[in-house]
Design a protein around this nucleic acid. Structure first.
Lengths: 205, 205
DNA sequence: ACCTGAACACCGTTCAAGT
DNA sequence: ACCTGAACACCGTTCAAGT
């Protein structure tokens, strides 16, 4: 056997990524296996290790792309208009994204990297960019609050939105009925913003 | 070899559960394996299958106990006093519980049961009981609101609290710095309750 | 009745050998 | 240089055989 060069290194890398993404979409992280990926792309298992360090490395790559496309989706939420409305839109965008690719989205929280390997810097940067979007949406509502307050509120809202979409996707603790997620999301954002804006007034007055 | 009867069926069951719990606390769900459990309790792997249907069944049992002890902890939050304060206390209790047993707590969300097996009814009941605790805490603040409104808000708060503790435990998207969780939790509950109580006034007025 | 240990069908990862 | 396939050390689960 030996070399075949049916694909360039880049092509092979993409081939692996897309086969893996499909596998995850079908059956979650548990459905992913090096041997099954190899089977689907017609290479031997060992070949994967020319393109990626190991499965964790591959999964981190897929997760990075996922964060990129969420950032992309959030960037498409139109600016201007009622600022309150805009925060709602951003929350909805997140929810749509998460529930549109449930298995893939779950990956971000199911997949734990070994303690030895540290989280790539690129990863953290993507995340800061996402958080920045939320902060931008909050800023128009925050007269008198400092950057810290906005940062904190962005994180709280993010966590809340995340909690709702995670729980609605969870197969066990189905606290949240299927269609309910967007109702709960709306309730969270509305009530939280109420307190957020009141906090504004307290600090200013 | 054959029968040994060093332990009764119940003793063996408990032995398996506690060895498994330790394994999970050490290395998470990924650290759990039938063979390793057997090694630790000095039985052969096959023996586990006399006590449990399979590993999923075992894990669900552990998860059930975990929910029981959270319910227990929540029940110990003193009644009476300032109702707002009490909601904060309940949130703190949840956070303490989750961050006190991070690996074990994560289990609830890492572990997906196969689609074939449906969630045991007991499981759902435990969860309703937990949610009831939150509803009880909200009720004193909810004059004029219906049972539906309280239910919804309990779920939203739960999801928010859950989101914060999950994200603070996540090894990747470390949006939430180590000690920050309780600050964010406080912010969430305070601002959300502000909107919740305003909603009360809107409906009543 | 209870438990073992071999067996079966899987894993991730490495690496000598082949082209 | 690239790829294979065997090898190693693991899995979960089943089940005939033993006491």
């Amino acid at each position: 056997m030996g070399r075949r060069s049916l694909h360039t290194a880049e092509e092979l890398r993409e081939l692996i990524i897309s086969a893996s993404t499909e596998l995850i979409q079908e059956a979650g992280l548990g459905g992913l296996s090096a041997r099954e990926i190899a089977r689907r792309i017609n290479y031997s298992p060992g070949t994967l290790y020319n393109s990626f360090e190991n499965l964790d490395d591959l999964v981190l790559t897929i997760e990075g792309r996922l964060l990129d496309s969420l950032l992309d989706a959030l960037s498409r939420v139109p600016k201007g208009g009622d600022p309150r409305e805009r925060v709602h839109k951003i929350a909805d965008c997140y929810l749509e994204f998460a529930s549109g690719n449930p298995k893939l989205w779950n990956l971000l929280f199911e997949h734990h990297i070994p303690l030895s390997r540290n989280v790539p810097d690129a990863y953290r940067k993507k995340f800061d960019a996402l958080m920045g979007k939320v902060e931008d949406a909050l800023r128009p509502l925050s007269k008198g609050l400092g950057a810290d307050d906005i940062k904190r509120s962005a994180r709280v809202l993010w966590a809340g939105v995340h909690g709702i979409s995670t729980l609605s996707a969870a197969d066990k603790l189905s606290i949240i009925a299927e269609g309910d997620a967007s109702v709960l999301m709306d309730d969270l954002v509305r009530n939280y913003l109420h307190g957020f804006e009141a906090q504004t007034l307290r600090k200013v007055g």
